[in-house]
Simulated scan of single mutants.
Amino acid sequence: MTQRSVAFPIVLIAIGAGWLVNELQLMPQMGTLIILGLIAAGVAVLAFEGINKSSVVTAPMLIATGFAVYLKDYHGLGLKLAIPALMVLAGLLMLLARSVHIRERVEQDEQP
């Protein structure tokens, strides 16, 4: 099954689930949704791509950004600390991605 064929059903499920949760008044605050969305996106990158030179940077950065937003919103961590910490993490992850032990990203060709 190609990514194109699953995209529309997944979008329908996401919109429908969000709408249902909102109608049942179970919707958390917007900040919580952003935090969960960033962390879920990072986990999804790892789940769909596995560990490669691209995902070893992207996934942890998404997850760390989600935690930084959480710490900012719920524990008062200022952006003056979060942004430099995220920059250091990004640099470390970029160096890690250069390792010969981490495989290159494999591009999937579209099949007719």
Rank of each mutant, 00 (worst) to 15 (best):
M1I: 10
M1L: 12
T2H: 07
T2E: 12
T2K: 09
A7E: 02
F8Y: 12
P9Y: 10
P9I: 06
P9C: 08
L12S: 12
I13G: 05
I13F: 15
A14M: 14
A14V: 15
I15D: 01
G16T: 11
A17Q: 02
A17C: 13
W19V: 07
W19R: 04
W19I: 11
L20A: 15
L20Q: 11
L20S: 13
V21K: 13
N22R: 15
E23Y: 06
E23I: 07
L24K: 10
L24V: 03
L24D: 04
P28D: 04
G31Q: 08
G31D: 13
T32K: 10
I35V: 15
L38M: 14
A40G: 08
A40R: 04
A40F: 11
A40P: 00
G42R: 05
G42Q: 07
V45F: 12
L46G: 08
F48N: 11
G50A: 04
G50E: 08
G50T: 06
N52E: 05
N52A: 03
N52D: 15
N52P: 04
K53C: 02
S54C: 00
V56S: 04
T58V: 15
T58E: 06
M61T: 04
I63Q: 03
A64F: 09
A64R: 01
T65E: 03
F67H: 05
F67Y: 13
L71H: 09
K72G: 01
K72R: 09
Y74I: 01
Y74V: 03
H75A: 15
H75R: 14
G76D: 08
L77Q: 09
L77A: 12
G78K: 07
G78V: 00
L79C: 00
L81S: 12
A82Y: 01
P84I: 04
L86Y: 01
L86D: 00
L86K: 05
L86Q: 01
M87P: 00
M87N: 00
V88R: 01
V88Q: 02
V88A: 06
L89Q: 06
L89Y: 08
A90N: 02
A90C: 07
G91C: 04
G91R: 01
L92E: 00
L92T: 00
L92V: 05
M94S: 15
L95H: 03
L95W: 10
A97E: 04
A97C: 07
R98A: 06
R98F: 09
V100N: 11
V100P: 06
H101N: 08
I102G: 07
E104A: 14
E104V: 07
R105K: 10
V106A: 13
V106F: 09
E107P: 06
E107I: 11
Q108W: 07
P112G: 15
